[in-house]
Simulated scan of single mutants.
Amino acid sequence: MTETTLTAPDATDPGDAQNHRPGIGRRLTIGAAALVTVVLALTLPAVTSNDDKESATVPTADSADAGFARDMAVHHQQAVEMAYLVRDRTTDAEVRGLAYDIAQTQANQRGMLLGRLDLWNLPVTSPDGYMTWMQGGHMGHQIKDGSLMPGMATDTELGQLGKLDGEQAEIRYLQLMYTHHMGGIDMARACAQQCTVPQEKRLAQGMVDAQQSEMKVMTDLLKERGSAPR
């Protein structure tokens, strides 16, 4: 798997966003909440009590804990890549800022997930393919032609996004990321139910909460542009 080093995608100063579109306060609130989720997930293992001693048990390679870590790391990587794409296709401060928040959060979470696999001495890929750990399979989401997991964009869709500019790029990015979050939330909910490592379950639930809030922001941004999720 190719690693991507995350650098700030030149997000406009948040104070300037008010000159572009309303609702910047909503985005900043979401960004702060996502950051809190990451900080808590990073610090909780250091302050947990004896109730979490079970987390020292190494899960098996075919466990939900390992499967979620592997698959969500790949899922998150595409979210970071899409943030880079939209950064270069628009000058709108609010969309760029939202994309930066998502990229920062998901890059940090991805590092945590891969770190857990390394700690457990488990492979970062499964010979059985993606999503085999989820009870109930894809939770009703149909995998699109060419995408790896539910919610993920196809190479064709990413190519189309890379050819758009301005508001058209903003709308396509928001629609693709909305769908991406839908698939990610289903995966995180499955881990919150099936995973056994307490910190992994907390991280998964934090993803659900943060991404649901971000989806509301995306819906508002699309509405302002005369569009909607699809």
Rank of each mutant, 00 (worst) to 15 (best):
M149A: 06
T125E: 14
T156H: 11
D128T: 14
A192Q: 13
L203Q: 12
G137Y: 06
T12H: 09
V208D: 04
D118Q: 12
Q194N: 02
K216P: 03
A56N: 13
D13P: 01
M177W: 04
L85S: 14
Q135E: 15
M131F: 06
A69M: 04
K201V: 15
I30A: 14
A41E: 07
V208H: 01
M152Q: 14
S55R: 09
L176M: 14
A83M: 09
Q78M: 03
T29S: 14
T5Q: 11
L98R: 01
A190P: 05
E170A: 00
Q109E: 15
A32W: 10
T12R: 12
P123W: 05
A32P: 03
H75S: 07
D165M: 12
P150S: 07
G146C: 05
L221A: 07
S213P: 02
L98P: 01
H76T: 09
Q18A: 14
A41C: 14
A210E: 02
L85F: 09
T12S: 11
V47M: 10
G67P: 02
G151K: 04
D165R: 15
I143N: 08
H180C: 11
V74P: 03
T4G: 00
D145F: 02
A153V: 09
Q109G: 01
Q106P: 04
S55T: 06
T2P: 15
Q160V: 14
L35Y: 06
S213G: 13
Q18L: 12
L44P: 06
G151H: 04
K53P: 00
K216Q: 14
G31Q: 08
K53L: 15
A34K: 10
R27L: 15
A46M: 12
A41H: 08
M218G: 04
G184K: 02
T7V: 11
A169M: 11
